[in-house]
């Protein structure tokens, strides 16, 4: 068991390192000259050279990647110039570990930048996750139990509609009608728990989370329905019934346990990906989360921020993968962690 976890962690770290390398190579393959870009519009070749030197852009890819990696663990300074630090310490920006780079566009450390956005995206992600898991699995189970009835067909049909509609349309609809026209909910505007209390935080999150959740919920309804139906046709359910178990016990102890196992896998990975930012939802509701940051930084060629975001998202997915695998071993005794 421990050996398995250790093995998975090691592969996870290796994958992160690989990811950072690939992102770095892409960084260099991009047509934008980072030195020129950082220097601004009115720039002389001499000035560019100076910037290149200050930020290390003149070094080889390998050295730059090494500097970056060292920065992640030990922190670094921008620009890395001891003489400048002596002469004009106010021009040098400290980037403490874990340092993911320095954004030339926003003039801020990438780590700080991400740190500010994580609670916003995280809030939406977690709230949406709870909604879609409860709603999706619940409705999917109901659909499976009433297979072929009007309820089942209604649920499956509705989920198809939500699955097909673009998220931005649903988001705009929810923003326009329940919030702006009807005033049923406040117009969403992110407030942290510290500022607005639990209620203020939650009520403002409701619409963006719902927007995001509806799309996933639609998928989960169909998936849960399929898994529950599959589980209901298993021989061991016939055994459970022939023992005289009450229908509720057959459903919860025997059917759901088997049906939920594959859903756990999906849910873990889906959560990881929305934690990395829900681009459209955040844009529609004007939430300054990771998704919006990604859109902005790509639009402004803010490459250090892009690298930081990619690594963060990769880390989320890798960690979620490990967690799901370990969880799986607990759920299904047949999975030998060997």
């Amino acid at each position: 068991m421990y050996a398995y976890v250790a093995r998975r962690m090691i592969t996870g770290v290796l994958m992160l390192i690989l990811m950072s390398m690939i992102t770095f190579v892409l960084f260099f393959a991009s047509p934008v000259d980072p030195g020129r870009f950082a220097c601004g519009k009115n720039c002389s070749p001499a000035l560019i050279k100076q910037v290149d030197k200050a930020f290390g852009y003149d070094k080889s890819v390998v050295v730059q990647w090494k500097d970056f990696a060292v920065g992640v663990f030990k922190g670094r300074q921008y620009p890395e110039d001891p003489s400048l630090r002596k002469s004009a310490p106010e021009l040098v920006s400290d980037c403490h570990a874990p340092c993911l780079g320095y954004s030339q566009v926003n003039l801020i450390n990438v780590t700080t930048e991400l740190k500010d956005k994580i609670p916003i995206s995280g809030s939406i992600a977690v709230a949406a996750f709870l909604m879609w898991i409860i709603g999706g699995v619940g409705l999917g189970t109901i659909a499976a139990l009433t297979k072929g009835s009007l309820i089942d067909r209604g649920l499956v049909g509705t989920s198809l509609v939500f699955y097909a509609f673009p998220t931005f349309w649903i988001g705009l609809f929810l923003l326009e009608f329940p919030a702006i026209k009807w005033g049923l909910v406040p117009i969403p505007n992110y407030i942290s728990i510290a500022d607005g209390g639990l209620w203020g935080w939650a009520s403002n999150l409701f619409l963006p989370a719902l927007t995001l959740a509806l799309f996933y919920m639609a998928g989960y309804v169909r998936m849960t329905r399929a898994f529950v139906l599959e589980s209901m046709s298993e021989d061991y359910l016939r055994t459970a019934k022939s023992k005289g178990l009450a229908p509720r016990k057959v459903l919860f102890k025997h059917t759901m346990r088997a049906a939920l196992t594959p859903i756990v896998t999906m849910a873990g990975l889906d959560l990881a990906s929305v934690l990395g930012g829900a681009v459209i939802t955040e844009t529609v509701f004007n939430y300054n989360g990771l998704g919006k940051l990604a859109v902005d930084s790509i639009a402004t060629f803010d490459l250090p921020t892009v690298v930081g975001l990619v690594l963060l998202l990769a880390a989320f997915v890798i960690v979620a993968n490990i967690v799901v695998d370990i969880l799986y071993a607990f759920i299904d005794p047949r999975v030998r962690l060997g």
């Binding site: 050996a3 398995y4 250790a6 093995r7 090691i10 030998r336 962690l337 060997g338």
Partner: peptide, 11 residues
């Protein structure tokens, strides 16, 4: 002869 290897679960 056909021997299928069995691997241990160590690191």
């Amino acid at each position: 002869q056909m021997y299928f290897p069995v691997r241990n679960s160590g690191l």
